[in-house]
Design a binder for these strands. Structure first.
Lengths: 249, 249
DNA sequence: AAGTGGTCTAGACCACAGG
DNA sequence: CTGTGGTCTAGACCACTTC
């Protein structure tokens, strides 16, 4: 019973069989697959083997499982799942180890502007902490970016935000308040350097710049920090890698 | 023996214990952790439970496992692992379903320019297929981007690249040649719209634009396709979400 | 009450790394 | 050769959903 086939473990063969069946439409989308017990019987395998196989389907987003209910087919085809992994949070702000954030302004503001309200997911009149900062690296004398940071009212008493920092602001929030960031959203776009920002980063108004707008979101799905950074075109680029999720392992 | 604590399953408690110990330096980086058998004894748990716990450490990149050797500590602190998942490949080129690629030029070229050689990871003199295309969406009458695509000599006989496409070029390569993309690298930066590209996308030279340079890499680590796209500033932005890898489940 | 998936036990055999 | 992690079995109890 062990070596029906070459080298692949039993649960991978079984996973592939189930994938094929789902693709072939044996189990309709939205319907329940056979239960673990049934699969054990059908394939003459133990529950361990069957569960290892189904785990693969789950990680490929082909099925959903629910205790007391069963295994429901979500999708028919294997959607290619690439993923990007960051070795550390600093990868996000790629100017890594040798980069520093210099705070140049710190104040509380009452948010009113519509565009800001939507970024912060806030209601008119909330009082957020607002920082302005410049990002420096060791190599370059000019700053590589100008950054505006907004911090949720609940954390506006945060301390330690002054002078030069070499840790991300949101990790300071995590440390001081025991908050936990569960998600980051970001949007990258090209803009013209504005008149007000240009002199701060020693660039010229109208020159192209990369704008990155980030939202830091906690477990309760609240924006607890947002950052808008503006990078002169030749001083900064954003690099990332995606690896495809292979079925084996 | 079952309910020593509240609700968390035993393997998660055990995982947390091991994480704490690694952080505290109980097991030095590079050294071997106790074997599964030892951990079973230490914690009075079965191998299943111990293995489930260690799986968590592996997925957090804290340890490496090697059959016949053991479990080796890789890192001391929990490097925050965020990851971005794409439901489909089309997420990468976010102009999803309703976007089309119009091929406007197709030719073979001999690569010579240094900048191109490094993007393609090619040697001087190789003959690649070169495409020029425009990206359209339904909503906008103007194109949202101009794209140059380079395809590795091995696949330059590819067919079907003409007119308007609504599938990514690299998936056509995968289909026709049985190749498999395992990794995608991309770099985003802001540039000035050049004189040659501006009229193609109905924009103006000197205006800010988002440049995305992508490399599609196969299992043997070869670049099999590269694409450079240029998007006028207000017509396109690049959005992504990262979720933190939580320990529980 | 019956059945589901989630957790857990106590065994087993295997391929492989190391002395 | 011994010991490791990888795979696999045949059981078990639980919380939960569904009827």
């Amino acid at each position: 019973m062990k070596k029906l086939s070459n080298k692949q473990p039993r649960y991978l063969q079984l996973a592939q069989t189930l994938i094929n069946e789902i693709e072939a439409g044996t189990y309709a989308i939205g319907s329940l697959m056979p239960t673990e017990h049934e699969l054990c019987e059908q394939f003459g395998a133990s529950r361990f083997t069957v569960r290892e196989a189904i785990k693969r389907l789950v990680s490929m987003d082909l099925v959903d499982r629910q205790p007391g209910v069963g295994t429901r087919v979500k999708a028919k085809r294997i959607e290619s799942v690439y993923h990007q992994k960051m070795q550390s949070i600093n990868d996000l702000q790629q100017y890594t180890k040798d980069a520093e954030l210099e705070i140049i302004k710190k104040e509380t503001i009452i948010v009113e502007k519509k565009s800001l309200l939507s970024i912060l997911d806030a209601k008119k009149g909330e009082t957020w902490l607002h920082l302005e900062a410049l990002r420096y690296t060791i190599e370059s004398d000019k700053p590589i970016g100008f950054i505006e940071i907004y911090i949720h009212p609940a954390f506006r008493s945060i301390s330690g935000l002054k002078g030069r920092l070499n840790v991300p602001v949101f990790s300071i929030i995590e440390d001081q308040f025991g908050e936990y960031i569960s998600e980051i959203r970001q949007e990258l776009s090209a803009i013209e350097m504005s008149k007000s920002v240009a002199p701060l980063v020693m660039s010229e108004a109208g020159a192209p710049a990369l704008k990155i707008c980030r939202q830091y979101i906690d477990l309760r799905n609240q924006v607890i920090e947002a950052a808008i950074s503006i990078h002169p075109s030749k001083r900064f680029s954003y690099i990332e890698r995606f690896k495809r999720n292979l079925i084996a392992r």
